[in-house]
Simulated assay, not measured.
Amino acid sequence: MNYENIYIEEDDQIGIITINRPKKLNALNRRTIEELHVAFKELEDDKEIKVIILTGSGEKAFVAGADISEFADFSVKEAQKLAAEGQEKLFNMVENLSTPVIAAVNGFALGGGLELAMACHFRVASTNAKMGLPEVSLGVIPGYGGTQRLPQLIGKGRAMELIMTAGMIDGGKAVEYGLVNHVVSPEELLPLCIKIASRISNNSVVAIKYAIKAVNAGFMYDADGYAAEIEAFGTCFGTDDFKEGTSAFLEKRKADFPGS
């Protein structure tokens, strides 16, 4: 696919996806969602890539929201289809990707932008980050999983307040709430994400895949997280990575995981 609104960089087992619509503050439109879908699939299928970092171009915005001009005139059915397709194609896909995804939140992450960051496995923000779900100020609600993921991350009461006031919080408040893991200067944002990604890449990609699956199961209404953990734990014992990891530990050497 020829990317118009994003670009991909690969460096030492890390893939960096940058959303690049600076004139629109990196707002999500259909084309961008499609490109991100393809890019995530491409990097997940690349066995050399062990971690993905998602960010926005420039310092003003990670993603300032959805491109409202695309759906302002939609009917009820069209709007429901938009939300369903978007969640399946991008947001749920990212959440359940077997390759870890870190959101490097630089600047505004509003509406669909915050929803995209929340779909990532965890988040790191810069000091100039501003995060919120302002949809009710437009007469609508978050439609890409925001009403579900935000309470999971920061608690029901705080999520209700943030959604109902259409307010924004900065990086300091976001880390206090548990919405992001770290807050650093804009200059330090990508270097810290790369440092964390490098640490992740030293570990078993197979075990990480099962860990993501087990953790996510605990937040699903129709799944038993403990049962998922037990199954995944046992499955790990049949992998080459487990054999290598335990052998390396007993032999007091660094593991060289085969990834199978």
Rank of each mutant, 00 (worst) to 15 (best):
S75K: 08
K41W: 02
G65L: 03
G113A: 08
Q87G: 09
I52K: 06
E70H: 03
F108L: 15
G113W: 07
F122L: 01
F74H: 08
A109P: 04
G107N: 07
S69A: 14
S75A: 06
F74C: 01
A64R: 03
F71W: 13
A66E: 12
E78A: 10
K81C: 07
E115H: 09
E48S: 15
D73M: 07
G56P: 03
V94L: 03
A66R: 02
C120Q: 03
S75Y: 04
F62L: 03
H121T: 01
S98I: 04
E44D: 13
I49T: 12
G56C: 00
K50N: 15
E59C: 00
V63T: 02
L82M: 13
E70V: 00
K50P: 11
G112I: 01
G113R: 03
E44W: 03
S69D: 14
N92F: 11
L90E: 06
A119S: 15
V63F: 04
L116V: 03
L90W: 08
F71R: 04
V76F: 15
S69Q: 10
L114M: 11
V51P: 08
D46M: 06
V124N: 09
L43H: 10
A66C: 02
G56Y: 06
E42R: 14
L82F: 15
S69H: 11
L90P: 05
D67L: 14
K41G: 10
F122C: 05
L43W: 10
K47Y: 14
T55R: 13
V63A: 09
G86V: 01
G58A: 05
D45Y: 06
F91K: 01
A84E: 13
G111W: 07
F62D: 01
E44N: 15
H121F: 02
K81I: 07
S98D: 14
L116E: 09
A104R: 08
E88R: 13
H121M: 03
A84Q: 12
E85Q: 11
G65K: 02
K89H: 08
E115F: 09
E95Q: 11
F91E: 04
F122R: 00
G58R: 02
L54N: 06
A84H: 12
D73R: 05
V124E: 09
S98R: 14
A103Y: 05
S98M: 09
A79Q: 07
E44G: 11
V76E: 15
